[in-house]
């Protein structure tokens, strides 16, 4: 457990563990997109927390990453979590018309639990776009949590398994002025007089006149500092597999999860 102040030592470690328990058990939270609807709260394996698109170590490659299954506490919850075998996971990539996918990469687990494998489909042009989809022709299959990744015949390198949640957010402050956004208190407004402010230290406020009316408090990252984990679907692909074949090299990406029942 990394601490910003080594002098605090074991006490801080104990406090951090206790805080983790409090956060996990008493105040389920949403961050970037963690626990953002009743549907995804009921089916955490389909709950997409974040989508990332970034250059790979090799300049000719690009990485697409989707994180799901939020707030996995270290230990048991992390070591037993696996993708939901009823869920189709998709990256959708638009080259032309905004919001209309030209290319998809799909993942469909076979089997429940950490012994599962995940079939990979694409990238390919889907026969239908929008919110009802079918799977394509499988490219290959990867075992869950193959740490070094699996390279498929089309050049995709895939890892699917538990990873550290890199998202960071002072959602304790956020929920004070927007309590509706906590799924446990939907429809709730902040009490009258609640300052719309994140937390600032007296030193920061003194140093910047613009912060004069801001809330005095301790800024806290509720997610990464508590060592929550997620399940990551990480795909490294040759850019040529993802980029449009002609014209602009811009891509627009989103991720979806789907079930055969819509629930």
């Amino acid at each position: 457990m990394k601490l910003r102040s080594g002098a605090l030592g074991g006490l801080a470690a104990i406090v951090a563990l206790v805080l983790t328990g409090i956060v996990y058990n008493l105040l389920p939270v949403r961050g970037s997109d963690h626990q953002d609807s009743p549907t995804t709260v009921a089916r955490p394996g389909a709950d997409i927390t974040d989508v990332f698109v970034y250059p790979a170590a090799s300049p000719s490659n690009v990485v697409l990453q989707m994180d799901v299954d939020p707030l996995l506490a270290p230990g048991g919850p992390t070591t037993t979590a696996a993708l939901d075998p009823q869920v189709l996971y998709q990256f959708k990539i638009a080259h032309g018309a905004p919001g209309v996918e030209d290319t998809v990469i799909q993942f469909l687990p076979t089997g429940a639990g950490t012994g599962q494998s995940i079939n990979v489909y694409g990238p390919f042009k889907p026969t239908t776009t929008g919110t009802t989809n079918t799977v394509g022709t499988p490219v290959g299959s990867v075992p869950f949590n193959a740490t070094g990744g699996v390279t498929l015949s089309n050049g995709l390198k895939v890892f699917i398994g538990p990873r550290s949640d890199p998202f960071f957010f002072d959602l304790f402050a956020f929920f004070k002025f927007l309590p509706d956004r906590n799924y446990k208190t939907p429809g709730t407004s902040a009490p009258a007089g609640t300052p719309f402010s994140f937390n600032f230290t007296p030193t920061e406020i003194a140093a910047n006149p613009a912060f004069a009316s801001c809330l005095v408090g301790t800024p806290t990252d509720a997610l990464s500092s508590n060592h929550f984990n997620v399940l990551s679907i990480v795909v490294e692909a040759p850019r040529s597999l993802i980029a449009p074949s002609t014209g602009s090299s811009k891509i627009n990406v989103w991720a979806t999860t789907s079930t055969t029942t819509g629930s």
Partner: peptide
């Protein structure tokens, strides 16, 4: 299959439609 290797595709593709329940 093992890790870090090209794998054999499954031979059967599931049929039917999947309905979107989450987007980000």
């Amino acid at each position: 299959c093992g890790s870090s290797s090209t794998t054999t595709p499954p031979v059967i593709t599931p049929s039917g439609s999947f309905i979107q329940i989450e987007r980000l």
